[in-house]
Amino acid sequence: MSASWGSQILRLTEVSKTYATGSLEVAALREVSFTVEAGEYLAIMGPSGSGKSTLMHILGCLDVPTSGVYELAGQDVTGLSEAELAEIRNARIGFVFQQFNLLPTLSAWRNVALPLCYSGTPAAERRERAVAALERVGLGDRIDHRPGELSGGQQQRVAIARALVTDPSLLLADEPTGNLDSASTEDVLRLLDELNDSGRTIALITHEADVAARARRTLRIRDGRLEDLVTSGVGA
């Protein structure tokens, strides 16, 4: 699979990750190579211990490979400093986690605005963009509610709005439905479908086949190696 950098969001070339504990070395990833095009919806599946979480951390610039190259929008991020990686995370990547990671004392819009605080965005613009992001995920009438006043599905939509507020190149979702009931799961997956339909690039980590089936392409990982690439789901 190849593409020009104009349409390619990320490229991994023979990426490996080894963790050392004393004299013991554990290979979490083994020469993983793939690309993701702009506008793709990719699911990454694998059992516990397969390496999918390590892969997610590298994609999100939360960790760096032991060897190989990771390029994000044409930039090799493999050798960047922690400060440079933090800047890339805040500007180019939106994160959605299983645990929501919302601050309980802050209103929905203030939670969503947090990434903009780190970039020095003026206060009035922060609120305007946060409210717009909440309206985008269907929570325009909940902007002043705190997380404890929202359902699990609504809290995850707040987390998605927070991920979108910086207009990132890539949306990374790590088991985003893991703490939700079936109705809330469907609501969140439908929202991800809509975001992808509007052009948002999404990489989703999951162990659930029915969740992965919503993506347009599935990457399976086992024992740190890619097993296959499957085109499936609603976008097939």
Results as ranks from 00 to 15, higher is better:
residue 6 G to V: 01
residue 6 G to Q: 13
residue 7 S to L: 13
residue 8 Q to Y: 01
residue 9 I to P: 10
residue 11 R to T: 15
residue 11 R to G: 02
residue 12 L to S: 08
residue 14 E to F: 02
residue 15 V to K: 13
residue 17 K to Q: 14
residue 17 K to E: 11
residue 17 K to I: 01
residue 17 K to C: 04
residue 20 A to R: 15
residue 20 A to V: 13
residue 21 T to Q: 04
residue 24 L to M: 07
residue 26 V to P: 06
residue 27 A to F: 11
residue 27 A to D: 10
residue 27 A to H: 13
residue 28 A to I: 11
residue 28 A to E: 10
residue 29 L to Q: 05
residue 30 R to F: 00
residue 30 R to C: 00
residue 31 E to P: 00
residue 31 E to F: 00
residue 32 V to S: 06
residue 33 S to F: 03
residue 34 F to W: 04
residue 34 F to L: 11
residue 35 T to D: 14
residue 35 T to W: 00
residue 36 V to P: 09
residue 37 E to G: 11
residue 37 E to A: 15
residue 38 A to Q: 15
residue 39 G to P: 08
residue 39 G to M: 03
residue 39 G to V: 12
residue 39 G to I: 06
residue 40 E to R: 05
residue 41 Y to D: 01
residue 41 Y to C: 02
residue 41 Y to V: 02
residue 42 L to Y: 03
residue 43 A to L: 08
residue 45 M to V: 05
residue 45 M to H: 06
residue 45 M to Q: 08
residue 46 G to N: 15
residue 46 G to C: 08
residue 47 P to H: 10
residue 50 S to T: 14
residue 50 S to Q: 06
residue 50 S to N: 11
residue 50 S to M: 08
residue 50 S to Y: 01
residue 51 G to L: 03
residue 52 K to H: 12
residue 52 K to I: 02
residue 52 K to N: 06
residue 53 S to R: 01
residue 54 T to K: 04
residue 54 T to W: 01
residue 55 L to T: 04
residue 55 L to C: 09
residue 57 H to I: 00
residue 57 H to P: 07
residue 58 I to S: 08
residue 60 G to P: 09
residue 60 G to W: 08
residue 61 C to M: 13
residue 62 L to S: 01
residue 62 L to Y: 02
residue 64 V to Q: 14
residue 64 V to G: 11
residue 65 P to I: 06
residue 66 T to E: 13
residue 66 T to G: 11
residue 67 S to D: 07
residue 67 S to I: 00
residue 68 G to N: 06
residue 68 G to I: 02
residue 69 V to F: 05
residue 69 V to Y: 10
residue 69 V to S: 15
residue 70 Y to C: 12
residue 71 E to A: 04
residue 71 E to T: 08
residue 71 E to Q: 15
residue 72 L to I: 06
residue 73 A to C: 14
residue 75 Q to I: 02
residue 75 Q to S: 12
residue 75 Q to T: 13
residue 76 D to P: 09
residue 78 T to D: 07
residue 78 T to Q: 14
residue 78 T to E: 05
residue 78 T to A: 01
residue 79 G to Q: 07
residue 79 G to I: 09
residue 80 L to P: 02
residue 80 L to T: 12
residue 80 L to S: 05
residue 81 S to C: 11
residue 83 A to N: 14
residue 83 A to Y: 13
residue 84 E to C: 12
residue 84 E to W: 10
residue 85 L to K: 07
residue 85 L to Y: 12
residue 85 L to F: 05
residue 87 E to P: 00
